[in-house]
Design a protein around this nucleic acid. Structure first.
Length: 382
RNA sequence: CCCGGGAUAGCCAAGUGGUCUAAGGCAGCUGACUGUAAAUCAGCCAUUCGGUGGUUCGAAUCCUCCUCCCGGGACCA
């Protein structure tokens, strides 16, 4: 508790904004910190299948940073959004059980593994937030009245659906609901992957038009939520288009990301060491001659190891060059580029690094029968 | 409720009475080749065609009933 208050505005700002793909409203942060406004963060998660590293590690790394910066962090368990988006069979009771069971435990364990404070997390369940909450529904209407149908239709990519896809009407309610969530949770910081920016941009655009639940700073002035967008980890499988056409990168990003619906592309937070080794061994890992940009193994090394303040130890036989430890991503890519680090050695090193990083999570799921049962229940409904 | 169109492997999809123990593609799996993966090559991958009853020597293919999906329309005192 004392560590959070001892940070300067600059230090806090740096923690809040580091290691992100994009920050919208970065210039507003120092002022909010300086005036001592309590910062409330939010990240909304659909209760879809198993938790993979994108959620467990990428999302939670930022949550850890925010906690260290003194921000109150809220994990919004979006059971209604899950229902709307046809995940988990659309069974609301099961979704709710998985949310407050498996999901909560998985996220807490992941955050703990990254050095965060799971006990300080606030979990909010969508269905509970909405129940008997006039302000929520009023805000939903206000958000809707201040945006357009076209805008909403263009934003359905936030739910992993492509524009032009045939959808039922409920899916159009999803984006404005997500925006309303932010305001009703009084979150002045909204976090999500790059795929969530459309919802966050709408939130900022309508922020000044809301009358029921506007966000305010300490002086009472209406403010917009700061939007933090973290990197989307590449899937371990070959991108749908290879080589990647830089022109089409925008659309391809989503197709290239790790996805639980493509098991080969993802590692889950409680995968066993052997599963991790097997998936990593099969991972797409193009040679340096193909460039470094869309290599998922390097991508993971950068975002999960180095940006997490760790080093990468590569155990090699003497004939393959002997052991070596990389202190930075730059050093790693330099070695990979000049051919002195073989892809297989890189993969082996990443496997062991991830196994070690996820060890506490596996332990959490393995040691407690009750938590293991939650996981089993989820597996059974996939 | 009415009209029309559908329902074939994880997905897309051919096939409209026998040669269908169901083409092809994607995905997936295995092996070969690479000190990784990818690419390439070889192999595997529906005894079964939404369910039911029937016609027939013989049905995924024709008929009955049922279930579900899609499009349109009707109803809306």
């Amino acid at each position: 508790m004392s560590e959070t208050t001892s940070l300067s505005v600059e230090e806090s700002t740096a923690l809040i904004t580091r290691n992100l793909e994009e920050v919208i409203g970065a210039e507003e942060i120092p002022a909010l910190l300086a005036q001592g406004l309590p910062l409330r963060h939010y990240i909304g998660l659909e209760i879809s299948g198993k938790l993979h590293l994108g959620t467990g590690l990428m999302c939670m790394q930022k949550v850890r940073d925010l906690q260290r910066a003194g921000v109150h962090c809220i994990i919004f368990l979006a059971d209604w959004h899950t229902w709307i988006n046809d995940k988990l069979g659309g069974d609301r009771e099961r979704i709710k059980r998985v949310a407050v069971g498996y999901f909560k435990e998985g996220l807490k364990a992941s955050l703990a593994a990254l050095g965060g404070k799971p006990e300080a997390l606030e979990f909010v369940l969508g269905s509970e937030l909405y129940h008997h909450n006039d302000a929520y529904w009023e805000t939903l209407i206000e958000v809707s009245k201040n945006t357009t149908l076209n805008r909403i239709m263009r934003s359905i990519s936030i739910m992993g659906r492509s524009e032009g896809e045939s959808i039922d009407f409920a899916k159009l309610i999803y984006p404005p609901m997500q925006v309303a969530d932010i305001f009703i949770l009084r979150a002045n910081i909204a976090q999500g992957g790059m795929d969530q920016r459309k919802a966050h941009v709408i939130a900022r655009d309508v922020a000044n038009m809301l009358t029921v639940a506007p966000l305010r700073d300490s002086t009472g002035k209406v403010i917009k939520p700061i939007a933090l967008h973290h990197h989307l980890l590449l899937g371990l499988d070959k991108p749908p288009q290879w080589p990647v056409d830089a022109e089409k990168l925008r659309e391809l990003r989503t197709a290239m990301k790790m996805s639980k619906s493509k098991p080969r592309s993802a590692i889950f937070i409680h995968d066993t060491p052997d599963e991790i080794r097997a998936k990593m061994r099969k991972a797409f890992c193009p040679p340096p001659s193909d460039g470094l940009d869309f290599n998922p193994v390097l991508d993971w090394a950068e975002h999960l190891i180095f940006r997490n303040g760790q080093t990468l130890f590569v155990a090699r036989t003497p004939e393959n060059g002997g052991n070596i430890e990389f202190e930075s991503y730059e050093a790693l890519t330099a070695a990979y580029s000049d051919g002195s680090l073989h892809p297989m050695d890189l993969k082996n090193a990443m496997s062991e690094a991830l196994i070690a990083l996820l060890e506490p999570v596996r332990k959490h799921f393995g040691d407690h029968a009750e938590i293991k049962a939650m996981w089993a229940e989820l597996e059974a409904m996939l």
